[in-house]
Protein backbone atom coordinates (compact mmCIF):
# COMPACT_ATOMS: atom_id res chain seq x y z
CA UNK A 1 0.00 0.00 0.00
CA UNK A 2 1.33 3.39 -0.98
CA UNK A 3 0.86 6.40 1.28
CA UNK A 4 -1.71 8.91 0.04
CA UNK A 5 -1.34 12.65 -0.24
CA UNK A 6 -3.03 13.05 3.16
CA UNK A 7 -0.40 10.76 4.66
CA UNK A 8 2.42 12.79 3.15
CA UNK A 9 0.84 15.92 4.57
CA UNK A 10 0.64 14.27 7.98
CA UNK A 11 4.32 13.40 7.85
CA UNK A 12 5.26 16.96 7.02
CA UNK A 13 2.83 18.33 9.59
CA UNK A 14 4.27 16.23 12.39
CA UNK A 15 7.88 17.01 11.50
CA UNK A 16 7.10 20.72 11.08
CA UNK A 17 5.45 20.90 14.45
CA UNK A 18 8.45 19.22 16.08
CA UNK A 19 10.95 21.37 14.21
CA UNK A 20 9.15 24.57 15.17
CA UNK A 21 9.73 23.91 18.85
CA UNK A 22 13.44 23.88 19.45
CA UNK A 23 14.48 21.98 22.56
CA UNK A 24 18.06 21.99 23.80
CA UNK A 25 19.60 18.60 23.14
CA UNK A 26 21.60 17.15 26.02
CA UNK A 27 24.26 14.57 25.10
CA UNK A 28 23.20 10.95 24.62
CA UNK A 29 24.50 9.01 27.62
CA UNK A 30 26.37 5.73 27.34
CA UNK A 31 26.43 3.02 29.97
CA UNK A 32 29.71 2.73 31.81
CA UNK A 33 30.26 -1.05 31.86
CA UNK A 34 32.27 -0.75 35.05
CA UNK A 35 29.15 0.40 36.84
CA UNK A 36 26.95 -2.60 35.98
CA UNK A 37 26.71 -6.01 37.53
CA UNK A 38 28.96 -8.85 36.32
CA UNK A 39 28.98 -12.40 37.61
CA UNK A 40 32.05 -14.42 38.52
CA UNK A 41 30.07 -17.60 37.92
CA UNK A 42 27.76 -16.59 35.07
CA UNK A 43 26.61 -20.15 34.29
CA UNK A 44 25.44 -20.66 37.88
CA UNK A 45 23.59 -17.35 37.74
CA UNK A 46 22.04 -18.27 34.42
CA UNK A 47 20.80 -21.61 35.75
CA UNK A 48 19.37 -19.92 38.84
CA UNK A 49 17.58 -17.27 36.79
CA UNK A 50 16.29 -19.75 34.23
CA UNK A 51 14.70 -21.75 37.05
CA UNK A 52 13.18 -18.56 38.40
CA UNK A 53 11.54 -17.76 35.05
CA UNK A 54 10.16 -21.29 34.78
CA UNK A 55 12.71 -22.98 32.51
CA UNK A 56 14.95 -25.97 33.17
CA UNK A 57 18.68 -26.09 32.53
CA UNK A 58 20.69 -29.23 31.78
CA UNK A 59 24.47 -29.02 31.76
CA UNK A 60 25.96 -31.68 29.51
CA UNK A 61 29.41 -32.45 28.19
CA UNK A 62 28.47 -33.38 24.67
CA UNK A 63 25.56 -33.11 22.28
CA UNK A 64 25.14 -36.84 22.43
CA UNK A 65 23.71 -36.56 25.93
CA UNK A 66 20.81 -34.37 24.87
CA UNK A 67 18.66 -37.16 23.49
CA UNK A 68 19.01 -39.31 26.59
CA UNK A 69 17.92 -36.46 28.81
CA UNK A 70 14.98 -35.60 26.58
CA UNK A 71 13.92 -39.25 26.55
CA UNK A 72 13.38 -38.97 30.29
CA UNK A 73 10.61 -36.48 29.65
CA UNK A 74 7.22 -38.14 29.08
CA UNK A 75 5.95 -35.57 26.63
CA UNK A 76 9.08 -36.03 24.56
CA UNK A 77 8.93 -39.81 24.46
CA UNK A 78 5.39 -39.68 23.16
CA UNK A 79 6.06 -36.84 20.73
CA UNK A 80 5.89 -37.64 17.05
CA UNK A 81 6.30 -34.28 15.39
CA UNK A 82 9.69 -32.80 16.13
CA UNK A 83 11.49 -30.05 14.25
CA UNK A 84 15.16 -29.61 14.98
CA UNK A 85 17.62 -26.87 14.08
CA UNK A 86 20.27 -28.67 16.07
CA UNK A 87 20.47 -32.04 14.26
CA UNK A 88 23.89 -32.77 15.80
CA UNK A 89 22.10 -32.97 19.15
CA UNK A 90 18.88 -34.50 18.04
CA UNK A 91 17.30 -35.17 14.68
CA UNK A 92 13.84 -33.97 13.84
CA UNK A 93 10.98 -35.98 12.40
CA UNK A 94 9.79 -33.17 10.16
CA UNK A 95 11.92 -31.24 7.70
CA UNK A 96 10.53 -27.75 8.15
CA UNK A 97 12.63 -26.39 5.28
CA UNK A 98 10.31 -28.29 2.97
CA UNK A 99 7.22 -26.59 4.37
CA UNK A 100 6.28 -23.32 2.77
CA UNK A 101 3.23 -22.20 4.75
CA UNK A 102 3.97 -21.79 8.47
CA UNK A 103 0.33 -22.65 9.24
CA UNK A 104 1.23 -26.23 8.41
CA UNK A 105 3.46 -26.31 11.47
CA UNK A 106 0.53 -25.93 13.85
CA UNK A 107 0.73 -29.49 15.11
CA UNK A 108 4.45 -29.51 15.93
CA UNK A 109 5.06 -31.07 19.35
CA UNK A 110 8.67 -30.06 19.91
CA UNK A 111 11.04 -27.54 18.44
CA UNK A 112 14.75 -27.99 19.13
CA UNK A 113 16.42 -24.64 18.47
CA UNK A 114 19.98 -23.37 18.52
CA UNK A 115 20.80 -20.58 20.95
CA UNK A 116 23.65 -18.20 20.15
CA UNK A 117 24.43 -17.18 23.71
CA UNK A 118 23.03 -16.94 27.23
CA UNK A 119 22.46 -13.89 29.42
CA UNK A 120 23.17 -14.66 33.05
CA UNK A 121 21.23 -11.83 34.71
CA UNK A 122 17.85 -12.87 33.38
CA UNK A 123 18.15 -16.45 32.19
CA UNK A 124 17.50 -15.51 28.58
CA UNK A 125 18.98 -16.94 25.39
CA UNK A 126 19.45 -15.08 22.14
CA UNK A 127 18.11 -16.88 19.11
CA UNK A 128 19.01 -15.62 15.66
CA UNK A 129 15.99 -15.88 13.37
CA UNK A 130 18.21 -17.00 10.47
CA UNK A 131 18.87 -20.32 12.22
CA UNK A 132 15.21 -21.29 11.76
CA UNK A 133 13.35 -22.06 8.55
CA UNK A 134 10.25 -20.48 10.10
CA UNK A 135 10.31 -18.18 13.11
CA UNK A 136 6.89 -19.47 14.17
CA UNK A 137 8.59 -22.72 15.23
CA UNK A 138 9.72 -21.03 18.42
CA UNK A 139 6.18 -20.11 19.36
CA UNK A 140 3.87 -22.68 17.84
CA UNK A 141 5.47 -25.86 19.20
CA UNK A 142 3.97 -27.24 22.39
CA UNK A 143 7.45 -27.63 23.87
CA UNK A 144 10.74 -25.92 23.19
CA UNK A 145 14.31 -27.04 23.78
CA UNK A 146 17.31 -24.81 23.12
CA UNK A 147 20.84 -26.08 22.71
CA UNK A 148 23.51 -23.51 23.56
CA UNK A 149 27.32 -23.69 23.89
CA UNK A 150 28.60 -23.37 27.43
CA UNK A 151 31.31 -20.95 26.36
CA UNK A 152 28.77 -18.47 24.99
CA UNK A 153 27.50 -16.41 27.89
CA UNK A 154 27.40 -12.78 28.95
CA UNK A 155 26.53 -11.32 32.32
CA UNK A 156 24.08 -8.60 31.37
CA UNK A 157 22.01 -7.08 28.60
CA UNK A 158 24.56 -4.36 27.82
CA UNK A 159 27.06 -7.04 26.87
CA UNK A 160 24.32 -8.91 25.06
CA UNK A 161 23.56 -5.95 22.81
CA UNK A 162 27.26 -5.39 22.23
CA UNK A 163 27.38 -8.94 20.88
CA UNK A 164 24.48 -8.50 18.49
CA UNK A 165 25.34 -4.94 17.52
CA UNK A 166 25.45 -5.73 13.82
CA UNK A 167 23.09 -8.68 13.60
CA UNK A 168 21.57 -8.66 10.18
CA UNK A 169 18.75 -11.20 10.46
CA UNK A 170 15.16 -10.08 9.95
CA UNK A 171 14.26 -11.51 13.33
CA UNK A 172 15.93 -12.29 16.61
CA UNK A 173 14.58 -12.93 20.07
CA UNK A 174 15.69 -13.21 23.67
CA UNK A 175 13.76 -16.15 25.12
CA UNK A 176 13.50 -16.27 28.90
CA UNK A 177 11.58 -19.26 30.13
CA UNK A 178 8.40 -20.74 28.66
CA UNK A 179 5.49 -18.57 27.62
CA UNK A 180 3.45 -17.53 30.62
CA UNK A 181 0.58 -15.43 31.86
CA UNK A 182 -0.60 -14.08 35.19
CA UNK A 183 -3.63 -12.33 33.78
CA UNK A 184 -6.10 -14.26 35.93
CA UNK A 185 -5.74 -12.96 39.49
CA UNK A 186 -1.97 -12.78 39.23
CA UNK A 187 -1.74 -16.58 39.30
CA UNK A 188 1.24 -17.63 37.25
CA UNK A 189 0.37 -20.14 34.54
CA UNK A 190 3.11 -21.55 32.30
CA UNK A 191 2.18 -22.20 28.69
CA UNK A 192 0.12 -19.23 27.56
CA UNK A 193 0.30 -19.20 23.76
CA UNK A 194 3.83 -20.35 23.10
CA UNK A 195 5.72 -23.29 24.53
CA UNK A 196 4.41 -24.91 27.71
CA UNK A 197 7.88 -25.73 28.95
CA UNK A 198 11.42 -24.76 28.09
CA UNK A 199 14.45 -27.06 28.33
CA UNK A 200 17.88 -25.52 27.88
CA UNK A 201 20.89 -27.73 27.15
CA UNK A 202 24.18 -26.08 27.98
CA UNK A 203 26.73 -28.08 26.03
CA UNK A 204 30.46 -28.10 26.80
CA UNK A 205 31.90 -29.08 23.46
CA UNK A 206 29.56 -27.29 21.08
Amino acid sequence: MKPTLADTDARQGILDRINTKHVDIPPLPDVDVDRVIQFDQPIEKFVEMLAMVGGQAHQVESQGEVRALLEEIDVFRTATRIVSSAPESIAGTIDATQIEDPHHLSTVDWTIARGEFMVAENGSIWIDGDTLPHRVLLFIAQYLAIVVPRSQIVSNMHQAYERIDNFSARFGVFVSGPSKTADIEQSLVLGAHGCRKLQVFIVDDL
Partner: peptide, 26 residues
Protein backbone atom coordinates in the same frame (compact mmCIF):
# COMPACT_ATOMS: atom_id res chain seq x y z
CA UNK B 1 20.25 -0.64 19.40
CA UNK B 2 22.57 -0.71 22.39
CA UNK B 3 20.21 1.64 24.23
CA UNK B 4 17.96 -1.40 24.52
CA UNK B 5 20.42 -2.75 27.09
CA UNK B 6 19.19 -0.09 29.49
CA UNK B 7 15.50 -0.34 28.68
CA UNK B 8 15.09 -4.11 28.55
CA UNK B 9 16.68 -4.25 31.99
CA UNK B 10 14.24 -1.71 33.39
CA UNK B 11 10.97 -2.56 31.65
CA UNK B 12 9.96 -5.98 32.96
CA UNK B 13 11.56 -5.46 36.35
CA UNK B 14 9.47 -2.31 36.81
CA UNK B 15 6.33 -3.75 35.27
CA UNK B 16 5.90 -7.17 36.82
CA UNK B 17 9.06 -7.84 38.80
CA UNK B 18 10.44 -10.23 36.18
CA UNK B 19 14.10 -9.93 35.16
CA UNK B 20 12.97 -9.70 31.51
CA UNK B 21 9.85 -10.65 29.56
CA UNK B 22 9.63 -14.22 28.24
CA UNK B 23 10.05 -12.93 24.71
CA UNK B 24 11.94 -9.81 23.66
CA UNK B 25 11.45 -9.94 19.91
CA UNK B 26 13.40 -7.89 17.39
Amino acid sequence: QRDLGVFTRLLARSATGQPITSYTSH
